[in-house]
Write a protein that binds this DNA or RNA. Structure first.
Length: 217
DNA sequence: TTGTGTTTTACGACCTC
DNA sequence: GAGGTCGTAAAACACAA
């Protein structure tokens, strides 16, 4: 099939012109890991044709080779058992799979990273769901607060009207003081009874009490 | 076929124990 | 110092146009 192409651009494996944001240490000319596989008959090679793919390649080959499905499956099972890799286990896996121990280590590193990303996505979804739920509750309470505020304003108006009427009647008759007229059980309406910015449960409770008092008498 | 987005492999830099 | 994470390059792959 394809012969080994030269690298598209200076890469981290070949050198100092890397686009890495951090300055790189002087690099050695490294033999990429794909060459480690060439001499060993891994399942990967058995499926893809092995060395044939690299015929005619005289440059250090930077071509990456995906692990075979059965290799990945084996590594996945091993990862499920334990996602960290002790040296003995690394060596054993490498031997069983016909890979370099470093390839196994890198596979585990990348697998942990993928696992972490997945977990973060899950956590995000769950937090977002909770947030949406709380916001819906908040909106509902805010709406109820608005409605109660409106009711309160109109009741306040009615109450004051009623008091004015009584005051007129009483002062025309017995001359009783205004303060004697108000029921001692009546909720006290003060200036900050229902501040515009507050939607607390206690205010809702007080509004309901006032409502009851006005309706029941 | 080709352009484009995603996944996988591999590495360097840095951190922690 | 060994082995971890993090960020990234680049190959491999998937897929629509």
């Amino acid at each position: 099939m394809a012969s080994c192409r030269p690298p598209r651009a200076p890469t981290t494996t070949t050198g100092t012109l890397s686009f890495s944001p951090r300055p790189l240490k002087p690099l050695l000319v490294q033999i990429p890991l794909c060459h480690y596989n060439v001499d060993s008959e891994t399942p990967d090679e058995a499926e893809s044709g092995g060395e044939d793919e690299y015929e005619g390649c005289s440059l250090p080959c930077t071509k990456k080779r995906r692990l075979a499905a059965n290799q990945v499956q084996f590594l996945e099972k091993s990862f499920e058992v334990e996602n960290k890799l002790e040296p003995e286990r690394k060596a054993q896996l490498a031997k069983q799979l016909g890979l370099q121990p470093r390839q196994v280590a890198i596979w585990f590193q990348n697998r942990r990273a993928r696992c972490k990303t997945k977990q973060l996505e899950k956590d995000y979804d769950s937090l977002k769901a909770k947030f949406d739920e709380l916001r819906a509750d908040y909106d509902s309470i805010a709406r109820e607060g608005d409605s109660l505020r409106q009711q309160l304003a109109s009741l306040k108006e009615k109450l004051l009207e009623r008091e004015r009427e009584k005051e007129v009647t009483v002062s025309a008759g017995t001359g009783t003081e205004k303060s004697d007229i108000v029921d001692s059980d009546s909720p006290r309406i003060t200036g900050d009874f229902w501040p515009e910015t507050v939607n607390s449960a206690s205010h809702i409770f007080r509004a309901r009490k006032l409502l009851r008092w006005v309706l029941v008498g």
